[in-house]
Write a protein that binds this DNA or RNA. Structure first.
Lengths: 216, 216
DNA sequence: GCTCGTCCGTACGCTTCCGTACGGTCACCA
DNA sequence: TGGTGACCGTACGGAAGCGTACGGACGAGC
């Protein structure tokens, strides 16, 4: 819905406007004429910068892919501790999830290969990165990968359901659930210190409870 | 793609054909003329049975909703043990997930209220049912609900990613991951017998491993 | 065998969108 | 200050799909 600021439009302007349309209504909403109207321009401008609608969709998808991989990973590079990286990723990831309507829209188009390719790449990079962090925490490569896949499932599922039924994902419930996930799938296999730290800070939490019951 | 069998078509015929279109290409693929062609009929027939395209989409959605709630639950009623019910649900649920392209297609249309309503109902019934089973296993209502939500996340995420990258979900990996989920989120909080049984049957598994490390 | 209601085909207008053709505008540079 | 090329608007043709109008076929009941 942005209006044109300067007199001239760049391909980037069109791609960003297309990304907004993508977030609103999926691939089918990336239509040249409505986007042109939203930009305060006409098709004459569009077909100067792009060959056809297809290339506009691909440009928008590229923008999205980059924001979901490189940008996120670069942002996490500042955090030295892999456990903390995972915490931030789980937290902000799920926090950011509901707002990422583009991904929701993309998950929808089973028959659109360009979107499929990018989703696949994003998923693989996510899982690879998660597995690396888990290995750094002491999990074997095989265990790390299985757990990374499960975390990716949780991420996607949470995003979808948060969008469907926001009540499921209020802040408190989300914190509780994140804690369960952390204890159940992430917590280092041989690092009882961290677990004790968390249990100490939150003595009635799930971890302390399940640990107790397991020792009983 | 079914052809017309008898001379006359029923609304049910149209709804089922629409459901197939829904599975293939999402809501936007539910178009009157193509479906009429697939049925070997024309729009003249369609507009006799339905007021407009909208009502056809809703009929298809109703068909889907029923198959995802009542039908599944009724099928599980035959299993007496709640733990076994959950095992079957996790197993066949994830097994059946990748084939359920309708749900994938529906998750895609954030801006379509009729689909949203039904997805919400399905999600809530799923979570409620899962929570009931978990309570029957000894979890408190609050814990059962959090875990049920997480399992629903896993279900949806698995379905999505299995569709995206089938290699992530080969049978072996899926079995391993299901076991991790079972141990981490489901296994009864006070029932160490079941855990021991599973550990005995699969001594090098994740549960035995993490249990050992937790006792160390 | 006639009638009537059910069911379906054909034909049409309307809208939305894609892509093309072509002419106009404006900055910049020689 | 005239020209050039980047940029954009207008106008058009075509395709796909929605919904309507209307007429024909066909079986059930009288």
């Amino acid at each position: 819905m942005r209006k044109r600021t300067a007199g001239r439009l760049t391909p980037r302007d069109w791609a960003e406007a297309a990304l907004e349309a993508l977030a609103r209504g999926g691939v089918e909403a990336v239509a040249v004429e409505p986007i042109a109207a939203a930009l305060g321009a006409t098709k004459g401008s569009f077909y100067w910068h792009f060959a056809n609608r297809e290339s506009l969709v691909e440009a928008a998808l590229d923008l999205w892919e980059q924001s979901r991989t490189d940008d996120v990973i670069r942002q996490l590079e500042g955090i030295p501790d892999p456990a903390e990286r995972l915490r931030v990723l789980i937290g902000t990831g799920i926090e950011l999830g509901p707002t990422d309507r583009v991904e929701i829209a993309l998950l929808a188009n089973p028959g659109y290969p360009p979107a499929l390719r990018r989703m696949r790449r994003v998923a693989q990079r996510r899982i690879g990165y998660l597995a690396d962090q888990l290995q750094a925490l002491g999990w074997t490569p095989a265990e790390a990968r299985d757990r990374a896949v499960l975390i990716a499932y949780l991420y996607v599922g949470n995003m979808q359901l948060a969008h469907l039924a926001p009540r499921l994902v209020d802040a408190r419930a989300h914190r509780r659930q994140a804690e369960i996930v952390y204890d159940a799938l992430i917590a280092a296999p041989r690092d009882e210190h961290a677990a004790a730290r968390r249990s100490g800070a939150r003595p009635t939490g799930a971890r302390a409870r399940s640990a107790r019951s397991r020792r009983a």
